[in-house]
Structures are given as C-alpha cells and as structure tokens.
Design a protein around this nucleic acid. Structure first.
Lengths: 253, 253
DNA sequence: GCGGTGCATTAACATATGTTGCGTGCCCAC
DNA sequence: GTGGGCACGCAACATATGTTAATGCACCGC
C-alpha cells in the first residue's frame, strides 16, 4: 500500500523534501477500511480525526429533515477529510463509502505540529484542501445555474478528471461506481429526473450503464456540452513565481 | 480602525497570545477600499494576495458562459479571501463589493511564515477558512434541496447570524444591503422568481424592503420555516478537549 | 427453482420555476 | 424640472422538474 494516491498528487507540487515525505508516511501509518454503503463518519458527531482516502470512493453528505439527503462532494483517493477538525470540533456532514475503501486516520491535532515543524508539508496539504474548496465552488455553480443535462454531464466529467489526476488510468477512471440515485442526490434532483436525464445522455451514446456503475463513452462530447473547464483543477503545478515566494518565506530559517 | 471584525471573531477562540495579536496587526497593516459594485478581484486572475474584509459587504461569484453569474458566498467583516493563494495561483472566482468596503491585503506567502512562527495564529485563521467551507456546504444544501421560499429564508437568516457573529448589533444586522437580483444570483433562481418569493415572504410580514436593501422583520419565523440550525456556525467556541489537544501539540516546544 | 431486494424504467399528472414583456416609482445627474 | 437608469412589481405563458405509482430485470440466498 505504499503507493498511495495522496503521495502521487503531492508529487506534482514538486517542492517536498525527503523529511516531508517521511513525516507524511508516519502520519498515514494507521489504516482503516470500509465496505460499500458503510457510514464512515456520522453526521453531527464530535470529530477530532483527520482522514485521507487511500483507495476507493466515497462521498460527504448531509441529511435533510424530510429524509432526503444532499451529497456535498465525492471523495477520491488522495482527498483529505476533516482538515479543520482541530478547530471545528463537530462534523456537520457524514461520510459514506461507495466502494471498498481504505483510508488513513490520525488525530487532527497532529497537523498543528506539522505546521510548525514542516510548513512545506502543511502547505502541500493546504493545497489539497484548497482544491476541495474549489470543487465546492464548482458544485454550487453546477447546481445553481445549469439544467439537468448539463449538470449531470459536468459532474461525470469532473469525476473522471479527478480520478485521472489521482493517478488512475483511463480505463479505471471512465467507469464510475455511482448509481443514478446517488447522482440524483449529488445533483439536487429527483431520482426519476436523474433517470430521464441519464437516458437522454445515454441515447446519444455518450454514457452507458454497467451493473451499478456508469461508463463514460465520450468524454469530449460530455465536456463540450457542459463547457467543462479542463484547467480548473490544474493549478497544482505551482508556477515558478509562487514557488519562489514559498522559498523566500522559508529561507530566513 | 483597530477594532476590526476579524479580531473580534478570533477573540472567541480564546487561545491567542499577545504575540499572535501583534503579528496579526502587522499582517493587516495595509488597507484598501472599494465602492459598491466595484470588482475587487477579477475572475481567472493570477492572484497571490490574501485579503481580509475589515468592514462592509461583498461576495464571491463566478460568471457563466451565458452571461449569468452564480454567487458562491457572501463576504462579511472578518472573512478571509484567498487563504490558499500561495498554493493555488489562479483565482477562479471574482469578488465584488456590495457596499463601501475596507479590506486588508498581504502576500499570501506571508502565511507560510506565520504557520512556522505562530502556529496558533495559523490555526485560528484556518478556523475562519473552515467556517467558510462549512458555509459552502450549507450553500450547496440550500440550492440543491430546498424550494425557493425556504432557500431565501435560510439565506437571509444565515446572513443575519453571520453579521451578528462578526460583532454587528441587531439593528445593523437586520438590514441587508442586497437587491433581489443579487439574491436571485446567490440562490440560483431567476430574478422574477426571486421577486415572487420575496413578495410571498413579505406578505406574511417577515421581511420588507427599504431602498436597495432587505429588512428582516421576524427572524424567528424565518428560521423556523427554513429549519435553520442555529448551531451550525457556532463551533467557534472550541470545546475544552480540543483546546487541550492543541496545547498538547504545541507544548513540546 | 423460488422469492426477495435493489436498481432502473416508464407513464400521467402536479407543481415549481423560467421567460418575455411591460408598467411603476424612485433617485440622481444635468 | 426632466430624462434616464435602476430596482421592483406583475401577468401570461412555456418549460423543467417533482411526485406517485406501477413494472421489469438482474442478482443473490436459500
């Protein structure tokens, strides 16, 4: 399991040193497992743990008074859950596994020490957190201002792209382990309408279903109708000036 | 201007020391101003600055291909914009002022040093960032799974609560400087429908308009129909166990 | 083989929301 | 004052989406 996807994603940043990597390894020592449908984190739970998804899929969600639920975002390998748990004690959202899932757990307060001893690593983890926030922005835009077809296409492409960035190859990342009901919860629409929308996209041959999963058949077409911005998750490759600034800030050490 | 609202909000955390406060003051030394309607941050702009709202209102938004825009969240005094700018160079959303606004600006890379020298302060700022993320979660839930009336009521109450927590008194915080068009952009609905919804709430006497602003007349009723969770922004008062953990993590200093 | 159970599909109908277009009142610059 | 711009109000109609309810189909345990 040493080839975890967080490592892969962080490598793109290209400024971590040997000691950062080894501290990261120690941080991620303790692993836990979950099976499909398992609730990993309960809502409204006192929570002082940070988790890192190592393999498999899940999602963060909130339940509504009327029994429905809203999926806030999906979790893929390399994602961090509970980054702020040190300062925000209660978790307001639950986490559920979609597939078999392996994740690392450590006390959130460890991050306080990390920030003191290895600011570079902390910065790198902050980068991951920042990406999540950007994904939330995108989710808001998707739900708030697009119709069902575009919403669904956009969501599917985003998941595909995130998986590829997490290091999964084309074939692994074009079969998404989500049911239409899950998609409906994520996109804020009824299951029936999700099905209508799904069939409409499937009729054009852009997606298809296989078992309880969805296969992307034509990612270009999907990106096109959703006017998906392929750059939007790309800012990982920190450009030289910024990297310089980091070194400057660190150098008076 | 020494009584800035970030200071007020951070005071609730109750673990910052004298040196943290003075570093914060130095960080927020440089102020800038904006007038209503002014674009403070352009979309898709290289951005290596972090900003802290000191007074006034604004919002983060994204433009859509068809000319509409989605408001991601509102900014009130004490909010931080561009917390991750060190690692995520490009800003994907713009920031616009709603009222006269004063804000502090500093290079995002300063935060790297803060995290090394004053992890407590960094933690405190992370708490602010964590609250913003929670607000995004709420925005997703609001847009994704509630009808127009509830969405609007919920949003209005949230703004009211956030203002009060930022230190504004009841009267200042029950008049919100937003037009119905702004609300529509925030709630992901058409301006006409926002107006319908507004009038429906106004007909019950729960809100009213005054000039270009909205006055909340009955916050209890609004909270009730929106089943607004008054705790959800409350986790600021870090409970003893967590605070203990922070001290533990810091003590081997 | 049988009967579940979970997911997908479909139809008919109800409702929420979007669109277009026009009218009103207010404030402000000239 | 007056003309223009802006926020708001409103009606009629078009459309997207929700609801309910029933059906089919695969998989699985027994």
């Amino acid at each position: 399991m040493d080839r975890n996807h967080l490592r892969y994603r962080l490598a793109a940043l290209d400024f971590l040193e040997e000691e950062d990597w080894s501290l990261l390894d120690r941080l991620l020592e303790r692993h836990q497992f979950a099976t499909p449908g398992e609730i990993v984190v309960l809502e409204k739970q006192e929570l002082k743990l940070t988790r890192v998804i190592l393999s498999g899929w899940g999602f963060r969600f909130r339940s509504l008074p009327d029994g429905r639920r809203q999926i806030l975002n999906f979790l893929v390998p390399g994602d961090v859950v509970g980054y702020y748990a040190t300062v925000i004690a209660r978790s307001d959202c639950g986490v559920e596994a979609l597939t078999d899932m392996e994740y690392a757990v450590f006390p959130a307060s460890d991050l306080v020490e990390v920030s003191r001893t290895n600011p570079r690593l902390m910065l790198a983890l902050g980068w991951i957190a920042g990406q999540s926030e950007r994904i939330l922005d995108e989710q808001i835009t998707r739900i708030g201002s697009r119709n069902a077809r575009i919403r669904m296409a956009h969501m599917l492409v985003e998941l595909y792209v995130r998986l590829r960035k997490a290091g999964l190859d084309r074939d692994q990342s074009s079969a998404l382990p989500v049911t239409q009901a899950i998609l409906a919860d994520a996109l804020g629409m009824s299951a029936v309408h999700a099905n209508r929308t799904f069939r409409s996209l499937a009729a054009q041959g852009w997606i298809s279903r296989e078992h309880g999963a969805i296969r992307l058949e034509d990612i270009r077409k999907l990106s096109a109708i959703a006017s998906f911005d392929h750059d939007y998750l790309d800012h990982g490759e920190v450009p030289p000036p910024t990297l310089g600034a980091i070194e400057d800030a660190l150098s008076p050490d």
